[in-house]
Write a protein that binds this DNA or RNA. Structure first.
Lengths: 241, 241
DNA sequence: TCATTTCTGATTATATATGATTACTTTGCA
DNA sequence: TGCAAAGTAATCATATATAATCAGAAATGA
């Protein structure tokens, strides 16, 4: 059997079964263990499978499409908790602004089972996740793509967002403080969040405890303009929640 | 037997079977191993098949998506071949329109090593790939995200594109025919491509041989408005190339 | 017609793939 | 923790496939 033909067969087998052992492949494909191992190594180098001791496992194709950034992996639990708290607010037929942060992106993953939800976002990853969810109509702001943040910004993005009015704006921030209000470290991101806030009926701020009491350079809005703060810690009284 | 006739037979055989060996082809087509090997090499250079030691395997369109290590780059597929042909056209400092097709997306992956390239695209994946490349400034059209195509479309996307003027428009299509011109099966995608064509100095059409002579519902542009057609087969004279 | 180019198959030196062997690593269990 | 079993990577000899070269055959074009 030809080398690539054999490797293709291995891939086929791994699409039907989650995992397979070297011995099984060896028997199925009439090749020695050494040959199978070399095939598996080649496939792994190409990113097609993942090796395990004694065999290989399937890599599912969407997980490799957009490799998770480090930022999303850290504090995963906290973000998941915030998403679960936010979810009950949402109803069928609503229109939502969602910023490009990884916290809000986490919420996007859970937007399943709704009908006629409309989302306007400047987050590339959020948009691509929502694209796969039935019942969600996605609008992306477009504009200049900010390299490291995977988010759109700039005049065009703001103009785009201004065309809509939403039931909720789901936003995150770098810091929130009773005196200074909600702050962000990047002006491009901040100005777009201001647009979201202006054009939404209710503003939901989602941030973990580490942001509380922090102050950053760009002011987004005073605490009073936030309808609800969703966080994983007890909030002091000054936040008016 | 003529060389091209023999190569077509090889392709036919490989459409029915996953893989075939040089010896088998040699027997089936009454030619020496050397001749078969030369045919296979030609087909591989055109991106039509993938060579393996002892024979060749069929290229199936999903498996070729992308994980390509350096060593695997020697095995080119059709989209890769087109990308390599298009690359020399591009110069530092230029502005490019790129559509959302997978063919153009492949070109995007190679846009490395340039300076001050500006790209306007409606392709979600193209945008996210370019975001990671230094020297490329990415603008995404935004607009309604078309679920299955991972691309933006609609009025907003068109309005956005109209704000720019580009040196090149790199577009793909479903069909091209000397009489009907360039066609597409989806109107949303087609109307955006028309905007790209109108606002670009030169239009480069990239498509593999299977599109030649095909006609689809939505007309994009006549053949004359295409500055250069990049394909992996010999073009008949009527295409004016 | 002849000259030129392209194509072909034989030859050979080189490169690749394979399975056996062996020494080493990981795993799981006591 | 340490030991046995299972799995692996490295090496090697062998078989097979390949690219490179060449000379003759077939097509091409003046």
């Amino acid at each position: 059997m030809l080398p690539l033909e054999r490797q293709n067969k291995i891939l086929e087998i791994l699409e039907q079964r989650q995992a397979v052992s070297v011995d099984e492949l060896s028997a199925l494909l009439y090749s020695s263990g050494a040959t199978i191992r070399r095939d598996l190594q080649a496939l792994e180098n190409g990113g097609m499978i993942r090796r395990t001791h004694g065999g290989a496992v399937h890599i599912d194709s969407n997980s490799m499409d957009f490799p998770m950034t480090l930022r999303e992996n850290e504090n995963l639990n906290a973000k998941e908790v915030l998403a679960q708290k936010a979810l009950p607010l949402i109803r069928d037929g609503q229109t939502l602004f969602m910023d490009s942060s990884s916290t809000i992106c986490r919420l996007a993953r859970h937007l399943t089972g709704f009908q006629r939800i409309r989302v306007i976002t400047n987050g590339l990853k959020t948009a691509s996740i929502l694209a796969d969810i039935d019942g969600v109509e996605v609008y992306s702001t477009g504009g200049r793509l900010r390299d490291n943040a995977m988010s759109f910004g700039g005049t065009q993005a703001m103009d785009f967002a201004r065309q809509f009015h939403a039931d909720y704006a789901f936003i995150s921030c770098r810091g929130i403080d009773p005196e200074v209000g909600v702050t962000e470290s990047n002006e491009t991101e901040a100005e777009l969040k201001r647009v979201y806030i202006q054009n939404a009926k209710r503003v939901v701020l989602m941030c973990d405890g580490s942001k509380i009491g922090q102050r950053f350079f760009c002011k987004i809005a005073p605490v009073e303009s936030i309808w609800k703060i969703i966080t994983n810690v007890q909030l002091p009284a000054e936040y008016g929640q």
